[in-house]
Design a protein around this nucleic acid. Structure first.
Lengths: 189, 189
DNA sequence: CCACAAATGTGATACAGGTCACACAGTCAC
DNA sequence: GTGACTGTGTGACCTGTATCACATTTGTGG
């Protein structure tokens, strides 16, 4: 099972940066495997954030709660996705975003300082993380455009086409919180 | 004037990555200075995209036109901002996003292949570009949250607080296109 | 298997923002 | 200066979505 996590991370990184076995083992030695139960919190608003998480199995969400206690979901995270409060992580501030588990989950935890150390020591690792953020940036821009351009129904269908597994895995009210509409409106399709 | 552009880029990069003079000169030799007139297009939908642009002076916008010919602004870009159609640039596809000039502008143009070459040759350059995209990613997430959480008036005030110079520099209908509302609604505050 | 909680569906109503139409001011070319 | 074009304000009306209220279904722990 520990082997499986290692293989998943290795396959994920190899698509972008080819590391020797020693390099990868060294990289991997900085990740801590953690298991969480459904509903458990991983990052809580107001706490300091010092790590990011690579999902092995299960489904997490990162979300924001506003003053009216309304929840907005920034991201669902499934196997091979990375998740954290990146604003807090990069700027060393307290979390404004929460991360918790929609299902039981296994993750690999990497601290910010270890990531920076590894990026500094291994050029190829820095290359990997540059690529990863590039992808995240492009995805965020696309989502922004979809928000401005498309109505709720269109965005809902888009989401389900991209991630059909969400339909059964997560409650509709969370999907509504991702789309930025009320659960009642989503229910009426 | 060519000197000025070089100084602006140098100061911008130095905040993150300390290069020797030779390294910076080498880096800089890959940038092409270009001047554009107000209204001129830099990236046009449907064309291939092979460069990104670092703004020295003036104001650009990147925007998307939907099927109903409605315009949505992804980003305004002023001095020291980077702009391109990053989706097309990274994935070698045709542009779906346009970039043009709101005012006369001077930019430094860097091709995708030169950036990748430089990132590969100089670890510190790769570090710089990783940092840059990290910032863009965090900004995009913040904007997404603001879109979901705040009404138009709030977002308008937020934008003007962050970039007061926009109020006089760009027409209100472009600000409306950035906020994702009609110009009439913006006009009524 | 029961009991309670969570999730989901649906009606009635309110309101923010879209759309269309028109007025008027500012800018620019000639 | 005149005419054309762009930018901006404002009224009237329409529509999508939020909100509140309640009913119904599904899930879960004991």
């Amino acid at each position: 099972m520990a082997m499986e996590a290692k293989e998943i991370l290795k396959a994920h990184i190899e698509k972008i940066a080819v590391l020797t076995d020693e390099q990868f083992d060294y990289l991997f030695s900085h990740f801590k495997k953690q298991s969480f139960k459904k509903g458990q919190a991983i990052i809580t608003e107001g706490d300091p954030v010092d790590s990011e998480y690579f999902v092995i199995s299960g489904c997490l969400k990162s979300f924001f709660i506003n003053d009216d206690l309304k929840m907005f979901i920034l991201q669902f995270a499934m196997s091979t996705w990375w998740v954290s409060d990146y604003n807090a992580l990069y700027n060393h501030t307290k979390a404004t975003v929460n991360v918790d588990c929609i299902t039981d989950a296994e993750v690999l935890c990497l601290s910010n300082s270890d990531r920076e150390k590894l990026c500094n020591e291994l050029h190829k690792v820095e290359h990997f993380f540059r690529w990863r953020t590039n992808r995240g940036y492009v995805a965020a821009q696309k989502r922004l455009l979809s928000f401005m351009n498309n109505n709720v129904k269109h965005r809902y269908e888009e989401l389900l086409k991209l991630y059909p597994e969400l339909y059964n895995m997560v409650p509709k009210k969370l999907i509504a919180a991702y789309l930025g509409v009320s659960r009642e409106t989503l229910s009426r399709l």
